Simulated assay, not measured.
Amino acid sequence: MTEGKGKGKGYTGRIVWRSIRQEAASVRRSARRCVTEAGPERDTAVQSLKAAGAALLAWALAGWWWNAPMALLAPWTALFLVQRTVYRSLVSGLQQFAVVVTGTLLAAGAGALTRNTMAAMALALPLTVLLGNYARFGAEGLYAPTAALFVLGYGSYTGFDILHRLLETLLGAVIGICVNAFVLPPVHSRNVRRLRGRLPEECADLLHTAADGLDGPYDREQALRWYDRAVWITDVVTELRSARRWSDESYRLNPGHRMRRSLSPPPQAEWDLVWDRIAEDIRATTRTLTEVTVLPDGVPGILATLLRAAGDVLAAEEGDRTEAAETAAAAHGRLTRVLARGHAETTPELGGLTADTQRLLDDLTTPLVTTRPHRTESKAPATPS
């Protein structure tokens, strides 16, 4: 029993050591990418350095030059207001200042009323914690009880002390917002462009893979793998929506976004909706393929031609795209005729495939689909197998 326990500890130690090495290797890769290429790693490093610089500047003004009694509040506020976007910094600054003012006044009132630190905390903290959980304040609500603790913990809540705390908080907020707005103001359009190029490539590759599988004998396991990839593509569309929101927000109230290098304007928002439909059409088609028990003779070959041509519409150059669309439409016509004949071997799944592929071809004719994405320097993540 003791020997087994020893082996168990040794195995656990090897797992922990392997995890540490993997994490260290990941950190090294991120640090290298931060230096060698533009991307999220570099953006994170820039924002981190800006936040540290804002805190240092706030401390220099409040603690060293002004010699404020609670100088810590200025760098503390500045540090957390270098947000991901300028708009977010401004909104968070207003929310945080309102929360800090309220929490400070509640704590000062409780201290003046009770003249006892413990009693004042018992009175003020429940109120400030409830205020901090108010949904309108979001994550900034935490600063209400924090501000109350600062006031009561230092035991100074005269009118002069309270005014100093509010001025120090305001100073830190102004510094944090200004640093974020005027020192390399963040613009988040790179991810929108990356996903814009990613979606057509992934959809075309999946359609070609399914077509190759239908050309020969395929089983349900293959169809399930196609379906899993189709579901993953719908997740990419969701990621695109999130990236779009960050991109749009990063341009709001941003005085310096024109100074940042930009490869091209982000695609219009209607593009997202079109690709949401296309991804759903592909997901529905592959889901039906997982449910197929038997298809009439010749139908797998027709489907293979249709899906391969649909993939070519996404992957081909302008001159070849029209020909690919005509090939897909002709294959769909043959599929419809097989369904219309209504032979005994016709299955309910064939009707579903006919409807799914018709919606796919309709969406592929949308003009926004033919807009060629701009290539970016960002590397796309690996496709799931």
Rank of each mutant, 00 (worst) to 15 (best):
S262M: 07
D320I: 00
V231K: 05
T209P: 00
R283I: 04
E323Q: 14
T288N: 08
R258A: 11
A284P: 03
D281H: 12
A269C: 08
V183N: 06
A316M: 04
T285F: 02
E249Y: 10
L253D: 04
R190Q: 12
G319Y: 14
G319A: 15
S264C: 10
T288S: 13
A269P: 14
I177A: 05
T290G: 02
N180I: 00
V183D: 03
Q222F: 08
P200H: 01
R225A: 14
W246V: 00
L199P: 01
F182D: 08
R277Q: 15
N254P: 12
G319L: 15
V231R: 07
R198M: 13
P255R: 06
V237W: 00
H208P: 02
S264V: 13
L224G: 02
R258V: 09
G311F: 06
R283H: 06
A309I: 00
A211V: 08
L184M: 13
A243P: 10
L273K: 12
A210R: 03
D205N: 13
N191C: 12
W275L: 09
H208S: 13
E270I: 08
L195H: 04
I233V: 08
V179N: 02
D248N: 12
R283P: 06
T234R: 11
V236G: 07
L314S: 05
P265Y: 03
V192E: 09
L289C: 07
G256H: 04
V236D: 10
W275V: 04
D312R: 09
R193T: 08
R252S: 10
V313R: 13
D272K: 02
D205T: 12
R198K: 14
V292F: 10
V187D: 03
E201F: 05
R258W: 13
E249S: 11
D320S: 10
R225S: 14
L303W: 05
P266R: 09
P217N: 15
P200S: 01
S247M: 12
L289E: 06
P265R: 07
